[in-house]
């Protein structure tokens, strides 16, 4: 029950993109097509879950015992960067088809602040390993949901008559704002 609440809260109530403003760059940049959005979401789901597990273990079994929590930022970003590299190499070897689907998105993920953000948040929220994994999965799903909805809307946006000054990014941002308004309706759900 607790895990279900964490997932629902992460996907809808505190959506990582629309309420917490993490991962905005890929949100605005990549989402032109629904298919690409799903691919990006899948890559994020994969890396976010892995990264959260590894960084949680490092925090609990390395940084805290040695009392060097202030090395958190450096350790985390290095872990995430090397993890992304490793995932890329391994995926290439063992599952070329999956690599084909996710490969192009992987390099972009290192600088996706959603990954580092979630890894830090689970520590701030004092979650145990199980909760952290569920939280990471929930947030990744929330990211994917926001991306897919946004991509779907954006496909239509290009066909609409929009004032010249608002064309492109400003119009997309206004739409994101309306989407955020819609997601506010989920507040109080949990």
């Amino acid at each position: 029950m607790e895990y279900i609440l964490i997932i629902i809260s992460a996907i809808f109530v505190n959506n990582i993109v629309l309420a917490q403003f993490l991962g905005i760059c890929p949100f605005l940049g990549v989402s032109g097509k629904v298919k690409t959005a799903v691919g990006m979401g899948g890559a994020v789901l994969f890396v976010m879950t892995l990264a959260t597990i590894v960084t949680w273990l490092i925090m609990t079994y390395v940084l805290v015992p040695f009392e060097i929590q202030y090395m958190q930022t450096i350790a985390y970003i290095l872990v995430i960067a090397s993890l992304v590299q490793m995932v890329e190499i391994i995926l290439k070897k063992i599952s070329p088809s999956l690599y084909q689907a996710l490969g192009v998105f992987l390099p972009l993920i290192t600088t996706n602040c959603a990954i580092l953000g979630v890894a830090i948040l689970v520590i701030q929220k004092d979650m145990d390993l199980g909760q952290s994994v569920v939280y990471a999965v929930g947030n990744a799903l929330g990211f994917m949901l926001a991306l897919v909805i946004f991509a779907g809307l954006r496909e239509h946006l290009d066909k609409l008559p929009i004032p010249k000054g608002m064309k492109g990014v400003p119009a997309a941002l206004v739409m994101a704002g309306i989407l955020a308004l819609a997601f506010m309706g989920f507040a109080g759900l949990v």
Binding site: L18, A19, F21, G165, M166, V169, P170, A171, A172, L173, V174, A176, G177, I178, A180, L181, F183, M184
Partner: peptide
């Protein structure tokens, strides 16, 4: 209120970007 909430961030930025373009 909407301007201090999440949607206001998107709206505010959208119009500032349009203004800067101009």
């Amino acid at each position: 209120l909407v301007f201090v909430l999440a949607p206001g961030a998107f709206f505010g930025l959208a119009y500032l970007i349009a203004l800067m373009k101009k």
